[in-house]
Amino acid sequence: MSVDVTAEEKVAAGGRLQGTKGSSGGHSTGKIGAYLLLSALALFALIPFSWLLLAAFDSDASISVEVPKAWTLGNFTNLFANEDGVRLMANSLIYAGGATIILVVVTTLAGYALSRYDFRGRRVLMLGILLTRVIPPTATIAPLYVIATDLGFLNTYHGVILILAAIEAPLALWIMKGFFDTVPIEIEEAAWVDGANRLQAAFRVVLPLAGPGVGAGALIAFIGAWNEFLIPLVLISDQDKIPISIGLFRAWVSYTQVDWGFLAALAIIYVIPAVVFYALARRALQASLAGGLAGT
């Protein structure tokens, strides 16, 4: 399984070991040092967010960090009362939600096949898919634009959705395959014996058991699509169809005319799903970064 789980088991074992030793003076200095270092790092991680948190509740915000003279929720009510604000949020939801739905369907199917069927070239295919993970849109953005133009994808929801789904597909596929690997084949075989055919067994027995994995894959895909900046920057010029990332950029570029409080409120709304989903999928994400992709 994942590196993370093993690490935690070992940590638990280590904790027991340490417990038997008791703590001396040297230990507590070490502990204080560790806490100080951690706190300094936590401050470094958090301070940049101070502007976001203060400006969003400031009735007269600027680009600088200031404690609001008058605290307000007005920026948030403006955001939801304002047609542009609502449209930005709706657009981001359409792009990320659409990409996630497509991705879950196609990677569940492919992940199941790669996990359950042994065929010639399966290994090479898995490694090839992994290799496509390293292709960033940055490198292929020029041809991607030409292809999108030829397919009539410019300024369309479905075009951006498909491209975002493709970008997230390799990682999601690996995660799905890993989770299917953890569902014992015996369970599926039992269903066959009971008269279910392969497809019925796959959908009724395996899929529910692999549910958490499918969920993790979906969350990771949603985050990636939700955060994407370059693809909509290049493919969407229609003001009515831009997602939040581009809205933030356009507002920031217009610098002098921008309502900073409104911008900060928008950024906070934009951050919430990303952070919540990230927290939910953290374990799968860590495993995928630290070497042991879940599975095997």
């Binding site: 936590a42 967010f49 955060n227 990332s245």
Partner: peptide, 19 residues
Amino acid sequence: FVLPLAVPETVAALTWASM
């Protein structure tokens, strides 16, 4: 510790623009 990476890159850039 997860926050700096979990926020979208545009928000990370915006907050640092203020910093």
